[in-house]
Amino acid sequence: MIDRFLEGNKTFIEGEFTEHRDYYRDLATGQSPTVLWIGCSDSRVAPERITSAKAGEIFVHRNIGNIVRIGDWNFATILEYAVKHLKVSDIVVCGHSDCGAIKALASDKESNEAYIPLWLSNAAVARATVETKMPKPTKAEDLRAWHRMIEEENVKLQLENLRTYPIVREAEKEGKVTVHGLYFDLETGKLDQIA
């Protein structure tokens, strides 16, 4: 598999990189993205790919379930760098359909894993909120819609968590940053703003 990626890199160099050499030369000296994108690690949801963004336009942080954990020093560092140094004007939290993290969160099965359930506890309120509106269905076709409700609710929850960070609250208050909740549908390829 790595050989395929190395060959793909040669194709990139011979094509895109060579055709836009000046653009990539400028990128080699620094970045100035306008967006901080907080997305899921899911391999099907690559931000640059689904938005047709160029290299250097999006500063990306990805994790299982597009979670913004409250009090996370790693995440706080990313926020501080994006807002204070890169001066991004927009912060996006993007969820997506068929999210494995949400399926795991929605499952009632006992897990023998150590880290995933602990991490997903940061999204548990999203499931609880949806359950107050609609109990977990038993039919497969209804379950899919229920999962989507949790996926979308999770984006809204993570936006709330994002705003617990003083750097985001201050930047929003001063009009330096706008926060967005997006949702990507894998079946249609459509990206929608949901919050």
Rank of each mutant, 00 (worst) to 15 (best):
G65A: 14
V168D: 13
K173A: 12
P47N: 05
T51S: 13
G95I: 04
P135R: 09
V45D: 02
A53Q: 12
V179I: 15
N161Q: 13
V45H: 08
R25F: 12
D142Q: 14
Y115E: 13
K136L: 13
G100E: 04
K10L: 11
S111Y: 05
F17R: 14
I116S: 10
T164V: 05
Y165C: 03
L157V: 08
K133Q: 15
I38K: 02
S111R: 07
E16G: 01
L6M: 14
R62K: 05
I167K: 15
I102W: 05
K54G: 09
V83T: 02
R163W: 04
V83E: 09
N74Y: 15
D98Q: 09
E7F: 10
N122R: 13
W146P: 06
Y183G: 06
V179R: 10
M134S: 10
R21S: 02
V155A: 04
K190P: 06
D22G: 10
R44L: 01
W73L: 11
T129C: 01
T29E: 04
K139Y: 09
D192V: 07
V168K: 03
E170Q: 06
T164K: 06
R148E: 15
E172I: 03
E16R: 02
V92Q: 03
V93C: 03
A53P: 05
E110A: 13
F75M: 09
V93H: 06
V179L: 11
T77F: 06
M149A: 03
I194N: 01
E151T: 06
S41G: 07
A114W: 05
L162Y: 05
D98L: 00
L120K: 08
K190H: 15
A171R: 02
E174P: 04
I38F: 14
T178Y: 02
E160I: 14
L118V: 05
Y165G: 00
T77V: 13
H147A: 00
Y81Q: 12
D3M: 04
N154K: 05
D142R: 08
I38H: 02
T129F: 09
A171V: 09
S41L: 07
F184A: 01
R148G: 15
A82S: 08
T51N: 03
K190L: 13
V45Y: 09
W119S: 08
C94D: 02
G30Y: 05
I150R: 03
K84Q: 12
T138G: 02
T11S: 02
K136I: 04
L157A: 14
E48L: 02
Y81E: 10
R148I: 07
E16I: 11
Y183L: 03
V177I: 09
Y24F: 15
L186I: 12
R62E: 02
L79M: 11
K173N: 10
E170F: 06
I38T: 10
T34Y: 09
